[in-house]
């Protein structure tokens, strides 16, 4: 990994980083990746995906849910007429 990779990841993840932090994160990633890389030596072959996993469905029916609209609105940094207000998109 190099500094460009860190910058690219920060852009993908939408996180502002200072120059100093980019460098120190690069150092962290080098040691973390060197450590987690040991899974490379594991031979996994054909692991069967047994089927412990299945989808959980429910009927698509309307049911009332108790939420305080007012309390949800209060959490928004900015709102107008009961809607979330965001910066101009275009």
């Amino acid at each position: 990994m190099n500094i460009k990779d860190v910058e690219n990841l920060a852009e993908l993840a939408r996180i502002d980083l200072t120059e100093g932090e980019k460098l120190s994160l690069l150092k962290d990633f080098d040691s973390i990746l060197a450590y987690v890389k040991q899974i490379e030596e594991v031979k996994v072959g054909e692991t069967k995906r047994e089927d412990e996993l299945h989808n959980v469905w429910r009927e698509d029916v309307l049911a009332p849910r108790e939420f305080s609209r007012e309390l949800i609105l209060k959490q928004f940094p900015d709102s107008q007429d009961g809607f979330l207000k965001v910066k101009k998109i275009l």
Partner: peptide
């Protein structure tokens, strides 16, 4: 800005690692 200033160092580290 929200994510840069709102998240602490370990959280930023793990988000970026996860993205990678």
């Amino acid at each position: 800005k929200s994510r840069g200033e709102g998240f602490g160092r370990e959280v930023r580290r793990r988000i970026l690692l996860g993205t990678y």
